[in-house]
Amino acid sequence: MKTSAGFWLLAVLLVAATSFSQTVEKYFKVGGTLQLSPQPVSAEITSIVWKCDKNLLAEWVKDLIELTYYSKFKGRTNLNTTTGVLEIRNMTAEDTGLYSVEINNQVQSWVYQTVAMEAVPQPVVSVRLLVCSSASKSCTLSCDGNVSAAGPVEYFWKIGDGEWKQSGTNMEIINNEETQHVTNFTCRMKNPVSERDSKPLPNPLFQIPSFPSSSSPTTVSDDTESEAPVTLGVVIGSLATVVAFCL
């Protein structure tokens, strides 16, 4: 069975369309600054056109068009005409979109899909079980906070003064000798634009380390006790002899 020329032409067009555009996801913090960089070019940059959703954002052509910003981006945008790097301040959720750039009349294959997100909240470590004490076999700790607008969030835990280790929202602690001597637990929330740590939670399984009892005091023997009166009698007798001699 022969493959038609139309099939191969369609395949070539699909491959070309796929390789022409490469979407790069770019997160930005609401109220923060978004920075977008073009792909490197070997020649001197003489013209730049940035677009947002196919609408003009910034434009510059050397010796022909002065640097111009358009619509809502006026007054909060800076374009470096030497490097092509674009910076937009005071970003809002409405600035989410597809950003593309044309350098020296060539549309670059990179396009940025920007995603707005809030900073992570102040996390709080809490105990999930209603009852958790030093007598419990285990307890589950939770790193709590409203992350609905924070995008993809990663969680990290620190045991006492140890190192941060990535984990999930919850962490189970087992009541064993090692855990009993840990003083506290701390969690961290992190997303592409921010990170925050909780206040340390005192370890609900903490137990005061036990120390070996001190050695028993030395017992005075009966012989020592019986020797005291004898020694005192000898001293008194000697003093009486001395006094009689002097008289």
Results as ranks from 00 to 15, higher is better:
Ser210Cys: 02
Leu98His: 08
Ser136Cys: 09
Gly84His: 03
Ser167Met: 00
Lys137Asp: 11
Met171Val: 09
Phe185Gly: 04
Gly233His: 13
Arg188Ile: 00
Pro40Ile: 07
Val242Thr: 12
Val230Leu: 15
Ser136Gly: 11
Pro229Ala: 11
Val243Thr: 11
Cys52Phe: 02
Ser37Cys: 07
Thr92Leu: 06
Ser136Gln: 09
Gln207Gly: 00
Lys72Pro: 02
Phe211Asn: 11
Lys54Ser: 10
Phe206Asn: 05
Cys139Thr: 09
Glu25Val: 12
Gly160Trp: 13
Gln35Val: 08
Phe73Ser: 07
Leu9Arg: 11
Thr46Val: 06
Val41Lys: 04
Ile45Val: 14
Leu205Tyr: 07
Leu232Pro: 01
Val220His: 02
Arg128Ile: 13
Val230Pro: 03
Asn175Cys: 04
Ser138Glu: 14
Ile236Leu: 11
Tyr70Thr: 01
Ser167Trp: 00
Leu36Ile: 14
Ile208Lys: 13
Pro192Lys: 11
Trp50Phe: 01
Ser37Leu: 10
Leu129Asp: 15
Glu118Ser: 15
Ile45Asn: 05
Asp95Gln: 00
Leu239Lys: 07
Phe156Met: 01
Leu79Tyr: 04
Pro229Glu: 11
Gly151Val: 05
Val230Arg: 15
Asp222Arg: 03
Ser126Trp: 05
Gln39Cys: 11
Ser21Ala: 13
Thr83Asn: 11
Thr68Asn: 06
Glu177Asp: 02
Val120Gly: 05
Asn170Ser: 10
Tyr112Asn: 10
Val147Gln: 04
Ser4Leu: 03
Ser198Pro: 10
Glu163Trp: 02
Leu239Ser: 10
Ala5Ile: 07
Glu227Met: 14
Phe20His: 01
Thr23Cys: 00
Thr83Arg: 11
Ala135Ile: 03
Glu178Tyr: 13
Gly97Lys: 06
Ala228Lys: 14
Gln122Phe: 15
Glu177Val: 00
Thr46Ala: 01
Asp53Cys: 09
Gly237Ala: 12
Trp157Gln: 03
Glu87His: 14
Asp53Ser: 14
Asp63Ile: 00
Tyr69Trp: 00
Leu141His: 04
Pro209Val: 02
Arg89Val: 09
Phe211Gln: 14
Ser100His: 09
Val120Ala: 06
Lys137Trp: 07
Gln166Lys: 01
Ser47Arg: 12
Phe28Pro: 07
Phe211Lys: 15
Ser37Lys: 09
Lys51Thr: 04
Gln35Lys: 05
Ser109Leu: 08
Phe28Ala: 08
Ser142Val: 12
Gln106Tyr: 02
Ser71Cys: 02
Leu205Met: 06
Trp164Arg: 12
Pro123Asp: 08
Asn80Arg: 13
Val24Asp: 15
Pro204Gln: 08
Ser238Lys: 06
Leu9Tyr: 01
Leu56Phe: 15
Lys62Ile: 04
Thr114Cys: 15
Gln180Lys: 03
Val220Arg: 06
Tyr27Pro: 04
Glu59Ile: 10
Gly233Ile: 13
Gln106Thr: 14
Tyr99Met: 13
Pro121Met: 11
Thr96Glu: 15
Gln108Trp: 06
Val49Ser: 02
Gly160Phe: 09
Val111Ala: 14
Glu25Asn: 15
Ala135Asp: 05
